[in-house]
Amino acid sequence: MPIDVVADLRAVERVYTMGNNRVAALDKLDFRITRGQYWSVMGASGSGKSTLLNVMGCLDRPTGGVYELAGRDVNTLDDDDLSDLRGAKLGFIFQSYNLIAQLDVLENIMVPLFYQDDPPPDGEERARRLADRMGLGSRLGHRPAELSGGQQQRVAIARSLVNDPELILADEATGNLDSQTAEEILSLFDELSREGKTIVFVTHEAHVAERASHVLRMRDGRAEEVIEQRAISSAGASA
């Protein structure tokens, strides 16, 4: 397998069983995401977008099929290995920011490093640089409650980048923001994509999806279509 395949899904299923009811939240999903691609996942409510992100984020396991993240089959990993994998390879951005209330901005950005077995020695330096880049340089000592929504989401983006992840997963990251702030955040994602980051971005809005290199349209847990909107310039990228 080529190294630049970040996520590889082969007939991935996620079935919820409630009594006699079987709900296939993910139904035989087959696609691979290579380094530098910017995927946008669209679909109606309940079509399985969040479930897909949970599986790709190693928070949930597929009930069928194989999911490999950075070359590792998650079905062969135990709970601690999955934590390690999340901490080392993934960055999460949530709709509701999900910052930790009792930590200040700098500490929030550094949380993923806290849990690494050997955290990078320049972790704090890195966190400060990211905060600067997100325009939060003067807010390092503030608590999340003292920040606006847009600022909180910037902290979350900085947090998702601090461990230099292979894959950034964003679930409706602009869903709680007004259109102008959303636009600012989306520009940040464009910037990250140009830098070669691999991103999966769940959204409801078509104009948001337009910015991505690939659009995955979901319906009832299935991949209705995958559209490659533009080729990725970085070396070795292919669909």
């Binding site: 934590s83 999340r86 999900n98 930790i100 849990y115």
Partner: peptide
């Protein structure tokens, strides 16, 4: 609960 979920997502193991 939410904070626990966030920490787990960010790499916290059960022991943490």
């Amino acid at each position: 609960t939410r904070e626990i979920g966030v920490r787990r997502a960010l790499g916290a193991k059960r022991k943490h």
